[in-house]
Nucleic acid binder design. Structure first.
Lengths: 208, 208, 208, 208
DNA sequence: AATGAATGAGGTTTCATTCAT
DNA sequence: TATGAATGAAACCTCATTCAT
């Protein structure tokens, strides 16, 4: 809450920041694995290497910890959307670029993605309201492109925009379950992403 | 820990059977909403209208209750697969028929589907092993059709069978999030399913 | 409570009696093994082969079941004492005869003896009062012989009668832990008992 | 299930150590009185003056609490055995010295002795295995002396060593029931112990 | 910042007992 | 007699959170 004084700021804030991130990283790992409700603060503390009580210097509650994780994920995906928007591509290309980049992020951050897509329901009050807003934003990011793509006839118009949007969202949200390569004999992230893009393009484009 | 044995004698009593089902229905509703871990036995009991302790006449543990729910869902989806197999259609048609029927089931049993796709991790021991086996079975159901479809050239061969399979599974598993029609102004289940099938067909078929 | 009518009496009472005994036998086995408090009515019912609720036709409560077991044991040991008294032997010989017979009973009824010596504390109210009376009676059975033996100089008089009595009681109560012969290579009951008697005699007799 | 590891660092804090001991002392008192199974964690907590949940800072389970009590008792009796062994007395004298010291310990720690001799059966898994090992150790402590005493002809050889051993163990284990002196009109511990030793010596020695 | 003891509410589960059938 | 569903209290244990140190 209080700003660090000028003199000690760089050192302190780095320390603080690192510790915050360490806690978040630990929480992400555990919560992705067992789910928010089944995760105890104790387990997170164990992983960080501090005592349970000490965590409360960084987070006011378990729910806030979840919120911060979701917020970070949301922020990073939003940046992807912003970056894609600045490329000024035609709708379908924008959409596919967005699919490419966000899928890549999900694959590189499987644990965070898991939490993002399954644990929102554990928030309450204002935090839940904020998270739901993110969800709608996220959906709009895709649905706007779909609408535009139908207008310029690059995306099929025989299906309602909402259905096409859901289809894309579902396919993208699920990449995190695609086979990874723990031992090198599976697929790389780029391979997975280009397959996904190919399939989505063929599913939704107007030309066939 | 212990595997559930046969609980209800077949004829034993309509009453008993109904009560079992009532408990399962209550648990499905609550667990779909809040998740297994965040659901208390108390809440399920309240919904059934009995005392907490009374539930243990029907289920030996909360985990067994979850297992029974998953088992029922598995059973019903498996029946769909069996029925489709008996139609003796060519691979791609079989696959799409299977997509049609299972998607419909997911839409008509959204709560059960939610639990099926997100709460397996809460099982342990033998029950977890059994559930994982279902998961693999389920995947095989799709992946066998994909392989056959690639062999007879009706399904695209430019992508590895495992990637195509995952894409389909992801799309199907996610129908449960598609916009339903609580107030009549959304889509009907058939409409959703035919859109899904159309999109999947265009994504994976060899002809374009 | 109600006396059976004349006609059906013999049959009925035998049945009833047998069932009562079956229940008691089951309870003895389980309670000796796990202790009264750790024994559930369910386990007793399982062993008898009836449902839990049915046991309450025979016993009004778990505590009464325990009481009946203790009462039976007490009764049988009391009969031993009476029989010995009727032999009209001199004090030391009476005492050793009593040790012989009661030790034998403990060895032949190890489970009942276990319960008799360890589970009385689980009774309450009137039943506890009655059981404590048995305990004192039991002790008197030995202590009277010791006193008489000290009077006629067959039992050592250098030790207070109460100490000698406790010593004997302790030795006798503990025979149930002496090595039995599950596979024939241990000792028989008679062998154990005569060793015990020999040792006690040498410990307490006045002549040495 | 899991074996208890080292709980308390040696120096760690007087406070912690004391609290552990306070909890153990409370548990000893209650469990000796009512038995392990009939003792609720609540009762122990009440006696310590903390909330039920707080006890779990010191012990991971009720069973572990029992284990710790038994372990402490075992440790103290083992030290007695070690001390006696270092006196380098002839077998019979060693045995009687051991009887003297351990009986004294039982009399001074009646509650702990009660638990030690009756509640082991409530352990399970590894803890039960460990406790059974103690039991065998304990028995060996006596039986080795008996064997040696028979070899050097100070202990009677007309009875099998195992029977003599059991007799001694039974007599010693039972001192805890001998009449104590709550109001001064009973016997002192030394008086009880010397009577016991006298009786055992006369029972088992070869000279008579 | 960190500790770790303590809290207190709530979790799952067990169980003796009752009772309508 | 027998059943077995239901009860309701109480059992053991967990856990997010607080706070004095």
């Amino acid at each position: 809450m209080t700003m660090p004084s000028d003199r000690t700021a760089p050192e302190q804030s780095r320390t603080r920041y690192n510790r915050d991130e360490k806690v978040i990283a630990a929480a992400v790992a555990v919560m992705s694995d067992k789910g928010y409700a089944a995760t105890s603060v104790q387990e997170v503390a164990d992983r960080v290497g501090v005592l349970k009580g000490s965590l409360y210097h960084y987070f006011s509650s378990k729910e806030e910890l979840l919120f911060r994780i979701l917020e970070e994920s949301h922020e990073q995906v939003r940046e992807i959307r912003t970056a894609v928007a600045q490329l000024d591509l035609p709708p379908l290309e924008s959409l596919l670029e967005y699919v490419t980049r966000s899928s890549t992020w999900y694959l590189e951050n499987r644990d965070r993605a898991n939490i993002f897509f399954t644990e929102m329901k554990n928030l309450s009050g204002d935090r839940l309201v904020a998270a739901n807003r993110w969800g709608r934003e996220f959906e709009r990011g895709v649905s706007d492109y779909v609408s535009a793509g139908q207008l310029d006839r690059t995306i099929r118009t025989d299906l309602d925009q909402r259905l096409v949007t859901r289809f894309i969202l579902g396919a993208v949200n699920n990449v995190r379950f695609w086979p990874s390569r723990p031992s090198g004999k599976q697929f790389g992230n780029e391979e997975i992403v280009s397959a996904l893009v190919l399939l989505i393009r063929d599913a939704i484009s107007a030309h066939r």
